[in-house]
Nucleic acid binder design. Structure first.
Lengths: 208, 208
DNA sequence: ACCTGAACACCGTTCAAGT
DNA sequence: ACCTGAACACCGTTCAAGT
């Protein structure tokens, strides 16, 4: 059969790049390898991303935040925030290799602006006002991105001496070890989420 | 004068690498450039880091968590956690270029183990038990790393369309804009910290 | 407009060689 | 033991050229 390739497009390039990162890691995302995956010379990518690899990486991060998460507005304000938090965690956890990009590249797309607006609205419905709303959203967002960061980071084995011997110098860590192995990550995320939402609610009572 | 260089050492290499990252960013940390900074051929570094650049990057992350943060044990348990949180934030904020490494490379050194143990002890003193302690520490740690991640990320200008026009589609964002510009980051961090600690305390009452 | 081929400056890393 | 020099395979990117 002839080489009737579907035409190269920004979207196809981003999809292939995402696939490459998921499968082999960010370090192996290379213009040449990406070209191979698309059955095209590496230089062809520059025609769709004239600013080069940096722009492509920005595109990946935007891609991750492209579809906005918005719960039905009639539900409880805390439940709406919970829905966003779960969806965001799932999304990031699905592409752990992108985390280093996510924490270093700011994105302001209609999707992210809409998501933030929805969070503000939820907090407003919860009785928060002014700076308390900003603090609440920052706290929640911080918790979520931080939690998934810890999850992704600790999924890799640590290379620090491999000193697994939790000796007598760490009595609490030793005592908690049995709980640690059995703790379900989803439950833990929910517990922290509950804690944060509880604390956020209290922000209304104690303005800074 | 003769070339009486102080001998190359792991510590000197890491210090130079950290300096390079702080000054020029992670992308410009290169074995050859690092060699130049140390007035040595790049290949000399491999004698002190036989596993190459990956090991060097791990070393940088360890370096960041090297000095443990431990508050006086007699102070209030929440205040101890606050002290740790502030110190950790300061430390990470001092080297924003390392953040991508920090979220992707786990570290288990005596210093980090000691810090975790101190956090467990504080939560225990606060009346938490078992899984609630694990959840509390994870939640707090997640918040702190997430908050600084957002700070560092948003310090760079976003490249998404530069659509600054907060139009009528985002009424809350528009209304909150005046507060947003004036909000002190330190105050906001403290507000979130208070919220998280409040929520954490409630974890004792509502075990999962 | 869209892609290719060759070229350039720069990587990380190896290996034999120097001292 | 500690560092150098040359070499290898691989990067991102430019640019003239093809169609």
């Amino acid at each position: 059969m002839k080489k009737t390739h579907t035409p190269l497009t920004r979207e196809r390039i981003l999809a292939a790049a995402l696939h490459l990162v998921d499968a082999q890691g960010l370090r192996r995302l290379t213009m040449r390898r990406l070209g191979d995956a698309l059955e095209v010379e590496a230089m062809a990518i520059y025609h769709h991303f004239p600013l080069g690899k940096e722009a492509l990486l920005d595109g990946l991060v935007e891609h991750l935040s492209a579809v906005p998460v918005t719960a039905a507005p009639e539900t409880d304000w805390q439940e709406r925030l919970r829905t966003w938090a779960r969806a965001y965690r799932d999304r990031v956890a699905a592409h752990p290799g992108l985390l280093p990009l996510l924490v270093s590249r700011p994105v302001r797309t209609p999707a992210t602006l809409a998501a933030t607006e929805a969070q503000y609205a939820a907090c407003h419905d919860g009785g928060l006002r002014g700076p308390a709303i900003l603090d609440a959203v920052r706290t929640l967002t911080g918790y979520v991105i931080g939690f998934v960061s810890l999850e992704i980071r600790d999924a890799r084995p640590a290379n620090g001496d491999a000193a697994e011997g939790l000796d007598a110098r760490y009595p609490h860590a030793t005592a908690l070890r049995s709980y640690a192995t059995g703790r379900d990550p989803d439950d833990q995320f929910e517990a922290g989420l509950t804690a944060v939402l509880t604390g956020i609610t209290a922000l209304a009572a104690h303005p800074v």
